[in-house]
Write a protein that binds this DNA or RNA. Structure first.
Length: 727
DNA sequence: CTAGCTGCTGTTTTT
DNA sequence: CAGCAGCTAG
């Protein structure tokens, strides 16, 4: 059977397009991944390209794996010659291959955002920078933002003293990273961009090699990633890009959907193909999503349709308190599972990771198996990062960040005093902390006395012995050795919550064993570095107990690209979804709406929406009202399942319809609310003048709102007494 | 030097 | 409600 059978005319056109740059506007569920993978298979099958000539960029590691799996299923070829991965993964591959030309040590390490922040804090301390005036987070943002735009410190334009200082620190930060041989996420991209732009030979080599470049999720690419693609594209090769502007949800991270607009021109793409038939969802779900997204102004415009029937209505549940909302979800999941539905084909989506705790608790109590994606990821756990820090030192002892993390963990009597001395020495002599530690250890014990159990000496001896074992053992054994010899094992054995951590550490060497099987590397040293890169780049991918049938819990962001028979979207409240932070940012609300659009379109057959009047947030119960997004979904698509409100299972009342018709304001779903005040609303006060409601709490006669008055500042007002007028 | 306490602060989404 | 920085007693 042909790999092309079953494609609709537009899909077929896209798959079999002659070699030329092209843009495919692919709506949610329109078979985007299928088009990409089938095109690759078709190119190879028809002899237009070998596996070596393919470069495919995806947005997540999950998507990359999926793509490889599907290609392998279609063609019996070895996919190893193909470059398929995330931008970060591919850049890592490029820099490893040409570390010398890129000016990096062979065994450079990748640091994640947390490591980056720690490095920045450390740097600022050593330079005596006032962290009140220059918060480390802000500098981190400044640096990443500059790198995302492709700018080094020397190229950043600074308008005032403040940004000049930040820029100086950016320069110092880059120097520190270089000294330590570490590379942050943004640096991976910028460094390989610079490598290709400065080295004509390499650039031409890769342009000649990658005849076909395929890009997934073009709307989520950053400026720098876009420029990187342009560098790799010459007159003889072409880029086939797929994207959906309505699913652009990473602008906060530097992605610009504008890349979709400029693509045709910049890459000379003569063809734009639209995939508008949705194969995923029943019509009610799709109609809801289409109606919602129509509220956005900035759109390329697409009209998704389906040949499927209407299906069931969307179910809306309103809870009095977050616990009740969680309870409802658990009940529905249990009922569906009892009816034969697979747990793994159901997902609960939420706006922020913190919301999973409550759900997890409810699911755990009800003995419903579940799996959480994101949140506290495996490779980000404390005990794992400790073990990885030892491994990083094995690969490269100059790595100050790794050294600082474990030099006194488990405690071996090296306190802040000795650390300060070492840091002074390192600063004076322009050497790494490891060098300073070596000197200190040697100065202390000029060859005499028995080996120490504690102190710097013992630490130096430990790292040196670990480095030796690395030459004699395979990677999983090296890891077990590290866990044992470092004292991590003993330390956690003595802890009351240490059992979980020990389990995770054991899982780490399992992960390494699995990694070794898949890897093509031969030397343990190289394998170790690859494994560390894997840990930094795919922090979330590894999970114990994979494959078991379990309910899926994740943020709306991480649900992108996935689909489920049944989807629950929870916490649909103003301030949470859309998130209050987003309301401040320009374009923030539209991005939140796209996120909601992504969430809605994950469902194939059944969609539950829920919100709660009260929610525990920042340690106190907050009152909140229904998300405006609920008001943007046509009423006739929704069925309320709301036993407590007395509305029963009927659809929304006529009253609600009227409110909806009259104003774009969010619906007042609660009968108990005195009026339709909501966060974000403009109001007038007889004394304080004009302002905006920024917060609300309490109900009935206790109801209070927090108003940010343009003149008088932020004030809490009791609705019963304050004479507020809507403005 | 260590461990444990207090009090403060910050809270979105991810490679 | 966290997690963490800074402090104090041992």
């Amino acid at each position: 059977m042909s790999i092309l059978s079953g494609l609709n005319p537009q899909q077929l056109e896209a798959v079999t397009l002659p070699k030329q740059s092209a843009l495919v506007l692919a709506g949610a569920g329109s078979g985007k991944t299928r088009v990409l993978t089938t095109r690759i298979a078709w190119l190879i099958q028809t002899g237009q390209s070998g596996p070596m000539g393919i470069l495919a960029v995806t947005f997540t590691n999950k998507a990359a794996k999926e793509m490889l799996a599907r290609i392998s299923a279609m063609l019996p070829i070895n996919t190893r010659g193909m470059w398929v991965g995330t931008f970060h993964g591919l850049c890592n591959r490029l820099l490893r291959a040409h570390h010398r030309d890129a000016g990096l040590p062979q065994l450079f390490q990748i640091i994640d955002s947390a490591d980056q922040l720690a490095l920045i804090k450390r740097l600022m301390k050593s330079l005596n920078v006032d962290d009140e005036k220059y918060p480390a987070k802000q500098l981190q943002y400044f640096i990443n933002d500059a790198k995302e735009q492709g700018l080094r410190a020397a190229e950043v334009e600074t308008a005032d003293d403040y940004s000049r200082k930040l820029n100086e620190l950016y320069q110092a930060y880059d120097e520190q990273c270089q000294r330590e041989g570490v590379v942050d996420f943004a640096e991976l991209l910028l460094r390989s961009y610079e490598l290709l732009s400065r080295n004509e030979f390499l650039r031409e080599h890769y342009r000649a090699r990658f005849q076909h470049i395929l890009v997934d999720e073009l709307q989520d690419t950053s400026r720098l990633q876009y420029l990187w693609l342009r560098l790799l594209t010459g007159p003889k090769n072409s880029v086939f890009a797929v994207g959906d502007d309505d699913q652009s949800i990473y602008a906060f991270r530097g992605a610009s959907a504008g890349n979709m607009l400029s693509f045709a021109q910049d890459f000379g793409a003569a063809t734009v193909i639209k995939l508008e038939q949705n194969y995923r969802s029943h019509a009610n779900i799709l109609d809801a999503a289409n109606a919602l997204i129509r509220h956005n102004q900035a759109r390329l415009g697409k009209n998704l349709w389906t040949a499927e029937g209407h299906g069931e209505p969307l179910r809306l549940y309103e809870a009095a308190i977050d616990l009740e909302e969680a309870g409802h979800i658990v009940e529905e999941v249990k009922a569906l599972a009892a009816g034969g539905s697979k747990l793994s084909d159901m997902a609960v989506l939420y706006r922020s990771n913190a919301q999973s705790r409550l759900l997890e608790h409810a699911l755990f109590s009800a003995a419903v198996p579940y799996r959480v994606y994101g949140g506290l990821r495996f490779f980000e756990r404390q005990e794992i990062k400790h073990a990885l820090a030892y491994l990083r030192l094995v690969a490269n002892p100059e790595d100050d960040g790794a050294l600082l993390r474990v030099i006194n963990f488990p405690a071996r009597g090296i306190g802040s005093r000795s650390l300060e001395q070492m840091q002074e020495q390192a600063l004076e002599q322009h050497c790494s902390l490891w060098q300073a530690a070596l000197r200190k250890a040697r100065a202390k014990a000029p060859g005499s006395g028995p080996p120490q159990k504690r102190g710097i000496e013992s630490f130096v001896a430990l790292v040196e012995s670990l480095r030796l074992t690395c030459t004699a053992l395979a990677l999983p054994e090296v890891i077990e050795h590290v866990i044992e010899q470092s004292g991590l094992k003993q330390h956690y054995q003595g802890q009351k919550d240490g059992a979980d951590r020990l389990e995770n550490l054991a899982e780490l060497s399992n992960a390494a064993a699995g990694f070794v099987i898949e890897s093509a590397e031969s030397s343990v040293q190289n394998m170790l570095v690859e494994f560390l890169a894997h840990a930094a780049l795919e922090a979330g991918e590894h999970q114990a107990g994979e494959g078991a049938d379990a309910l899926q819990l994740m943020t709306a962001h991480s649900a992108k690209g996935l689909e489920f028979h049944t989807v629950f979207i929870s916490g649909l409240e103003e301030g949470l979804f859309p998130h209050e932070q987003s309301l401040i940012e320009p374009g923030g609300l539209e991005e939140e709406r796209r996120l909601m659009y992504v969430a809605l379109t994950r469902a194939r057959r059944r969609l539950y929406l829920s919100f709660s009047q009260n929610r525990m947030l920042h340690g106190q119960t907050r009152y909140s009202i229904a998300s405006r997004f609920l008001g943007e979904i046509p009423i006739e698509l929704i069925k309320r399942v709301n036993p407590k409100s007395g509305v029963g299972n009927s659809v929304l009342s006529i009253e609600d319809k009227t409110a909806r018709g009259l104003s774009p304001q969010p619906l007042n779903f609660s009968a108990e609310l005195p009026s339709s005040w909501h966060v974000g609303q403009n109001v007038l006060h007889p004394k304080f003048g004009a302002g905006v409601i920024v917060n609300a709490e309490g109900r009935g006669s206790d109801a209070r709102v927090q108003v940010n008055f343009h003149k008088a500042g932020v004030k809490w007002l009791a609705l019963e007494y304050a004479k507020l007028i809507p403005a």
